[in-house]
């Protein structure tokens, strides 16, 4: 059991690296779909475990919701938004991809440096799952920083959320059911609004480049 979870955790981290190295916007969405599927599997594993040991159903329910929402619904929604935008490949980055991957490696090392010493978060000797999931959060932010395209921003935001969910899942077998559900509803609304906004931005500025939105400041 422990081994499977470790494997899944490493695969999730790997998917973040894959995401970081992507250039095509359609493959952002594909990678996100893959990462969400890994998370759904993890939640399902933990859910079966807790159902068989203490008869709790809630983590199982959460895992089905994740699969429905993050594997099927949101990627499809983003895909249909993408149809309306000309840009298919991200061209200019603030930093090029090899450097971003190197920074991501640095982030993992740094998370290891910071988190591994914390006691009581996880039962293992090294809190490797926590380290991985916190690296995921940080890489989500880095992804948002490095991409100029609005869909890239949305995917980065969703990756941060994934990281947070996995951190909670690994440290405490998930947050209370009602809170998880609340967060999912938040995400649906956020993604819906952002999808509409990207469409509008593209229409108005003839580009979905967020770097051009600099007029709104105090």
């Amino acid at each position: 059991m422990e081994n499977y979870l470790n494997l899944l955790s490493h695969l999730m981290l790997l998917s973040s690296f894959v995401l970081m190295a992507n250039k095509r916007i359609r493959s952002y969405i594909k990678t996100f779909r893959m990462q969400s599927a890994l998370i759904g599997t993890t939640a399902a594993l933990i859910g079966f475990e807790s159902f068989s040991s203490s008869g709790r159903m809630d983590v199982l329910v959460v895992s089905t919701v994740i699969i429905a929402l993050k594997v099927i619904y949101i990627p499809n929604l983003l895909g249909s938004t993408l149809e309306n935008i000309d840009l298919k490949v991200e061209k200019d980055f603030f930093l090029n991809i090899p450097i971003l991957v190197l920074i991501s490696c640095g982030i993992v090392v740094f998370s290891y440096f910071s988190i591994s010493a914390v006691e009581g978060i996880n039962t293992g000797i090294m809190n490797v799952q926590i380290v991985n999931s916190i690296s995921m959060i940080l890489m989500g932010i880095l992804f948002m920083i490095s991409r100029k395209n609005a869909i890239g921003q949305i995917v980065g935001f969703l990756v941060i959320e994934n990281g947070l969910f996995v951190t909670a899942m690994f440290s405490t077998e998930g947050m209370p059911f009602i809170i998880d559900m609340g967060i999912f509803i938040d995400i649906i609304t956020a993604v819906l609004i952002m999808g509409v906004m990207v469409f509008k931005i593209n229409e108005k500025f003839e580009s979905a480049d967020t770097n051009k939105l600099k007029n709104l400041r105090g």
Partner: peptide, 29 residues
């Protein structure tokens, strides 16, 4: 300070957040 910090760029604001989180993690260690 206002002109330097508040440029209107989303990416810069994200970098502030990123730096704050990293600083908190460093403090934790």
């Amino acid at each position: 300070i206002r002109r330097k910090l508040q440029t209107g760029s989303i990416h810069l604001y994200l970098i502030y957040m990123f730096a704050a989180i990293l600083a908190a993690m460093l403090y934790n260690r």
